[in-house]
């Protein structure tokens, strides 16, 4: 089963992600974004970093979660190749990032992502699956 796919947009880029649970959906969304930002295969998974974020609802939480992961990458703090969502509710999320501290020369941006947008943002349950659509400004 696909975990995410890239979506078209005239000026920018987006993705659609799926998961059997909200936690898996948020994990796959972050993996989709990192696959656009860099080449996750070149990152080791030797270190972990804990992260907690909040939002008013699932869509807001999604933007804030992805913005946190992006901020850590852009400031060279942490380059994540995978994620484990340890606890999630509609208004908060606690997760573990798996990767390594970013060394920009070794871990360049493949495409610099400026920000995560609210544009046509969707986080919803469809039958037994959770699905999200997110657009990124590049």
């Amino acid at each position: 089963m696909n975990e995410y796919e890239i979506l078209e947009h005239t000026a920018d880029i987006g993705f659609r992600a799926w998961g059997p649970s909200p936690g898996e959906l948020f994990r796959n969304a972050a993996r989709a974004m990192m696959a656009i930002a860099t080449e996750p295969e070149i990152l080791s998974g030797l270190e972990e970093r804990e992260l907690e974020t909040h939002g008013v609802d699932y869509p807001d939480l999604m933007v804030n979660w992805l913005s946190e992961v992006l901020y850590l990458f852009d400031t060279n703090q942490f380059a994540a190749r995978d994620f484990r969502v340890d606890d999630i509710a509609t208004d908060r999320l606690r997760a573990t990032l798996i990767g390594e501290p970013r060394e920009p020369e070794r871990h360049p941006w493949e495409l610099i992502i400026k920000a995560v947008t609210y544009h046509q943002l969707k986080v919803e349950q469809r039958n037994s699956r959770w699905q999200a659509e997110v657009f990124l400004d590049i």
């Binding site: 807001d60 933007v63 609210y118 943002l121 400004d137």
Partner: peptide
């Protein structure tokens, strides 16, 4: 660069709740 992108991200995050306070409703959260 990242400075401007983060300024916009920060304020968009805070303006959602602030809009409710000012009674503003719009067709797109962005």
């Amino acid at each position: 660069r990242g400075l401007g992108h983060q300024v916009c991200t920060d304020f968009l995050r805070d303006m959602g709740p602030a809009m409710r306070k000012y009674g503003i409703e719009l067709p797109d959260r962005q």
